[in-house]
């Protein structure tokens, strides 16, 4: 499997959450917000600010630091 950090993906790409390497609390928070293993997300915006992803029809903004710690697999 090829993991890449979410922050490296281009807008419009769809991917699946593979692993989150943030601290324990942040990881659990993300899991409970729907970024659990295998969750499908779509990169909606990725330029300078936080990365905006689509998750189950909602938009969530993730700070770039966090997006760098979220490893995903491209579809």
């Amino acid at each position: 499997m090829n993991y890449s950090p979410l922050v490296d993906l281009h807008e419009g790409v769809t991917c699946k959450v593979a692993r989150i390497q943030a601290g324990r609390t942040a990881t659990k928070r993300l899991y409970e917000m729907g970024f659990n293993t295998g969750a499908r997300i779509k990169v909606l915006k990725n330029d300078r600010g936080p990365v905006i992803v689509g998750l189950g029809g909602h938009k969530v903004a993730l700070g770039r630091g966090l997006a760098a710690k979220m490893l995903v697999t491209k579809e």
Binding site: A26, V60, A61, G63, L66
Partner: peptide, 10 residues
């Protein structure tokens, strides 16, 4: 450290 930004955009 600056904490992480996680925010839903309704």
């Amino acid at each position: 450290e600056v904490s992480h930004f996680i925010m839903e955009l309704p």
